[in-house]
Nucleic acid binder design. Structure first.
Lengths: 336, 336
DNA sequence: CTACGGTCTGGTAACGATAACGGAGCACGG
DNA sequence: CCGTGCTCCGTTATCGTTACCAGACCGTAG
């Protein structure tokens, strides 16, 4: 079947009649080595079934080509898009993403960060700007670049690539007010664990205040992850508690779609009787009937910009330490 | 700021007056060490800002606690669920998932597998049972467990945790036929890259054949990843090409929902005029109006069972080499 | 003929942790 | 007093690769 010992560079060296050092060079691109020698080495390696050992290489060269990334949940198309953009940008350069899920829990994030740092990544990307004191300390003392994303942290640890969730919601409130809506509610953002969600709710309240409007129509939607089902339940409560509501902004397109379906089940016309806005520009918001007004947070772009920032930093190119993304308001039929 | 050299176990040993070996023991749970000594060591480590170095540990102990996983795309709730189940099962035991995306491309999968194996994972999980010859060889020669998922491979490389996509679709066809539908179409599964999708289409054709029904109402939906938009486009083509169709089965709930929205835009009653079935039991299918009949492929369970299988294998517990998952037909309003 | 730059290859010594082994110290029983 | 078993800790030698430093060889210029 297979040998009990996996072949090493030394085995290839013996078989090819060169030194282990030369074998090493054959596997490293851009090293000074005769083409014939290299070909012979690679051929011998293939014959022996050799598999390069990153573990040893990492230790000796003190670089792992790992980029550590924490996201709240894998089950979220927005974060998935960010990771996708990041992954594509970085894997082209041979980096491997080390992904961890915090489950929207800062304690879990702390554990995760500690675990990830042990792997000696060459940069670490975290979602959000709120951390436990110890997690903060770990990140500050990490001798690699730290990038916070999806937020504009009050006190950035290192770099960040993000946007203001509060400002983004404000742009939608402005749209609703300009469209003539006055009695506006908000669904979600009640879970303190989802800090971006609660930033959106706070932004909603501040925006309504600045328009001189009543900001007390707040409907809870429970713990993250945000679900369509909870959006539907929340809409049911909204219609019961504040029957005269003209428009509702949801913490996410997912809850917005759930809310929309609740209206459909009850025969409540959207936007005729109540207008709906979401957040995140998920695919569903663009295709459901009516299509959802939303804010595109540019999830993929966040990932790409983060990836490029990391490459700049690791290549010692001049970099912009803080990247602010501009979310884009997308007005669709659900609010007109 | 920070020292230019990160502290090592030797530094802690010097500071605490013990040997490096004892420091090592302090960090390994279940080792024989005096409680006071351990506490002193951990305290000194915290003071020095020591971070355990997995790369060195991995090399010496020849185990990385990595589990390599390939999935077609991160942007798919089903695969995300599988990874979620896998991750939860394994991270409780200290394993780290090394995730890679094949982008539905076997060539890319081959590159990815090679790259992942260099990291010396302790097991490798791949999605699907179709691979390039070289990828197959790499997996066969890997000296760690190999688990194929989301499929019942014709020739399993090692273990598998999956189900027959063809059989799963057959159960839905049977439901439609029993409900009285005869002119049944299929949307998607035309892209050979999405092998599970094309298995479903083939299963659809075989099932219709066995019922003595015409299986030529096939609508393409383009390259993966499967999108709601393409589902809507496909439904438009279906209504144009085969206007007398009574029911349609889609390769995924996502295309099914897209198809449903197209019907809504055109005022085509569902299921009154045309019934719709999806696949995968995505959240959306349970909440949209009407809710979608679908097949639950038990994505999360696939991940959990794979995780438990890996733990059994690594702990030398007796294991069931091949786990067959039973997909569950869920009948909802879209087909009744 | 010597000097010199460029290409290619080899020897040696780490990188930082730990497996394996051994030994010290102590308690206990006969 | 010795033998036995247990807890706890130190010494040594790696794990497989590569950074660093030499050095051999070749062609060309002075």
């Amino acid at each position: 079947m297979r040998n009990d010992k996996a072949p090493t560079m030394a085995d290839i060296a013996r078989k090819t009649g060169v030194s282990p050092m030369t074998v090493s060079r054959a596997f490293k691109s851009g090293s000074l080595i005769n083409k014939d020698t290299r070909d012979a080495i690679l051929k011998a390696a293939e014959e022996l079934g050799y598999v390069f050992d990153s573990t040893a290489s990492n230790l000796r060269s003190q670089k792992t080509d790992f980029i550590a990334v924490t996201i709240p949940s894998i089950n979220n198309a927005n974060f998935a898009d960010t990771v996708g953009g990041l992954s594509e940008t970085l894997s082209a350069r041979g980096f491997q993403i080390l992904l961890g899920y915090t489950n929207y829990d800062v304690e879990e994030e702390e554990r995760l960060i500690e675990q990830l740092l042990r792997r000696k990544p060459q940069a670490i990307v975290v979602t959000g700007g709120k951390h436990t004191p110890r997690a903060r300390r770990l990140l500050e003392n990490a001798s690699v670049p730290v990038i916070e994303t999806w937020d504009v942290p009050a006190e950035p640890i290192g770099h960040f690539v993000g946007f203001s969730n509060a400002d983004a919601v404000r742009s939608m409130v402005d749209h609703f007010v300009a469209a003539g809506y006055r009695r506006i509610a908000f669904i979600g953002g009640d879970a303190s664990r989802d800090t971006r969600g609660s930033d959106r709710r706070l932004g909603f309240i501040a925006a309504l205040d600045s328009h001189g409007l009543d900001a007390s129509r707040l409907i809870d939607a429970g713990v993250p992850p945000i679900s369509m089902r909870e959006g539907a339940n929340a809409m049911a409560r909204l219609l019961a508690e504040f029957p005269d509501t003209e428009a509702v902004i949801c913490v996410s397109d997912l809850s917005a779609f759930g809310a929309l379906t609740e209206c459909q089940r009850r025969g409540v016309p959207v936007p005729g009787r109540i207008a709906i806005g979401g957040f995140g520009n998920y695919e569903i918001g663009g295709i459901c009937v009516p299509a959802l007004t939303t804010v595109d947070a540019q999830a993929r772009q966040i990932g790409e910009r983060t990836g490029r920032l990391i490459l700049d930093l690791l290549d010692d190119r001049p970099d912009v330490p803080h990247v602010t993304i501009e979310p884009r308001l997308i007005v669709r039929d659900s609010s007109r």
